[in-house]
């Protein structure tokens, strides 16, 4: 069994004069959470579409779970769960019906629908039409669809889109437990550093279609700290820490986060 689940070699995608992905070399190891970080338009979604065979590379190659991705060859995707860009579903069908379609097309057992509904806490919405769901619940539905067939690899494009802070923490914990407990490899893109920093084992930073940095989370955190020391005044660094504390405090007060001293001293409860 190869140790690398996703690999790209000299991957290129050009749209006329624009090079969206430029000589990208990636290796995502089995069982790790790989954060693919970049600004909007950096080439993250284009890369993900190439990983899933949705668009053809202009050059280079993609290998997923040991199989080279060739347009139209979809067999390997029985082992891959994915969420590409916006969370979409058949709007006139219910959550359960949408998942049943996914179940049938992935050859999963009937119980997998109820399991994925429970896993993503969609029970109250199971018989609601997808078109009537909030953005956050649409995202949960898309994640339920991605997880339904117990994939070995999850390819997630901005998985926290539309989720509230409690939802973000839940998805973060879910992905971590899948990676640690079941050995699922997660390749997730984001443009939000905090989201990736909380979760990823390794982080690749893509800019203008090129991978400009690849580090473990700890290495990147150390680099960020060093950078912050040099680049910011003590007041600015204090402000950044305050933002992190506020996030923890908010989660604690809304019942989903760790209970800290600051949270328990709130006066209006």
């Amino acid at each position: 069994m190869p140790d690398t689940t996703v690999s790209t070699r000299a991957l290129v995608k050009r749209y006329r004069d624009v090079t969206a992905v430029d000589s990208l070399n990636l290796d995502v190891r089995r069982g790790e959470i790989y954060g693919f970080l970049g600004r909007n338009g950096a080439g993250k979604t284009t890369t993900i579409r190439m990983l899933l065979g949705l668009i053809r590379p202009s050059g280079g190659e993609v290998t997923v779970l040991g199989r080279r991705i060739v347009p139209g060859e979809t067999g390997v995707f029985s082992r891959v769960g994915f969420l590409v860009e916006t969370a979409t579903a058949y709007p006139h069908l219910t959550v359960r019906e949408n998942l049943d379609i996914q179940r049938r097309l992935t050859g999963s057992p009937p119980r997998s629908v109820a399991e994925s509904i429970a896993l993503l806490r969609l029970d109250p919405y199971a018989d609601r039409r997808a078109g009537q769901l909030s953005l956050g619940n649409k995202q949960r539905l898309a994640l339920a669809r991605a997880l339904l067939h117990s994939p070995e690899l999850l390819v997630l494009d901005e998985p926290a889109n539309g989720l509230d802070p409690a939802g973000i923490v839940q998805i973060r914990e879910l992905l971590r437990s899948l990676a640690d407990g079941r050995g699922v490899t997660v390749f997730m893109s984001s443009h939000i550093l905090a989201e990736v920093a909380h979760l990823a084992d390794r982080i690749g930073i893509v800019h203008d279609g090129r991978l400009i940095e690849e580090s473990s989370r700890d290495e990147l955190a150390a680099k960020a700290r060093a950078f912050a020391t040099d680049a910011y005044t003590p007041e600015e660094r204090e402000q950044a820490l305050l933002t992190l504390d506020l996030e923890r405090y908010f989660l604690a007060r809304t019942g989903d986060g760790p209970k800290g001293g600051a949270a328990s001293t709130g006066g209006d409860s």
């Binding site: 579409r49 899933l52 065979g53 949705l54 139209g72 979809t74 067999g75 390997v76 995707f77 029985s78 891959v80 994915f82 590409v84 860009e85 916006t86 979409t88 579903a89 058949y90 709007p91 996914q102 097309l105 992935t106 050859g107 669809r145």
Partner: peptide, 15 residues
């Protein structure tokens, strides 16, 4: 229109 084509075409089903 519903942007479900991308979900459909990356399934383990011959297109």
């Amino acid at each position: 229109r519903d942007a479900t084509a991308k979900n459909m075409l990356a399934l383990p089903v011959a297109r």
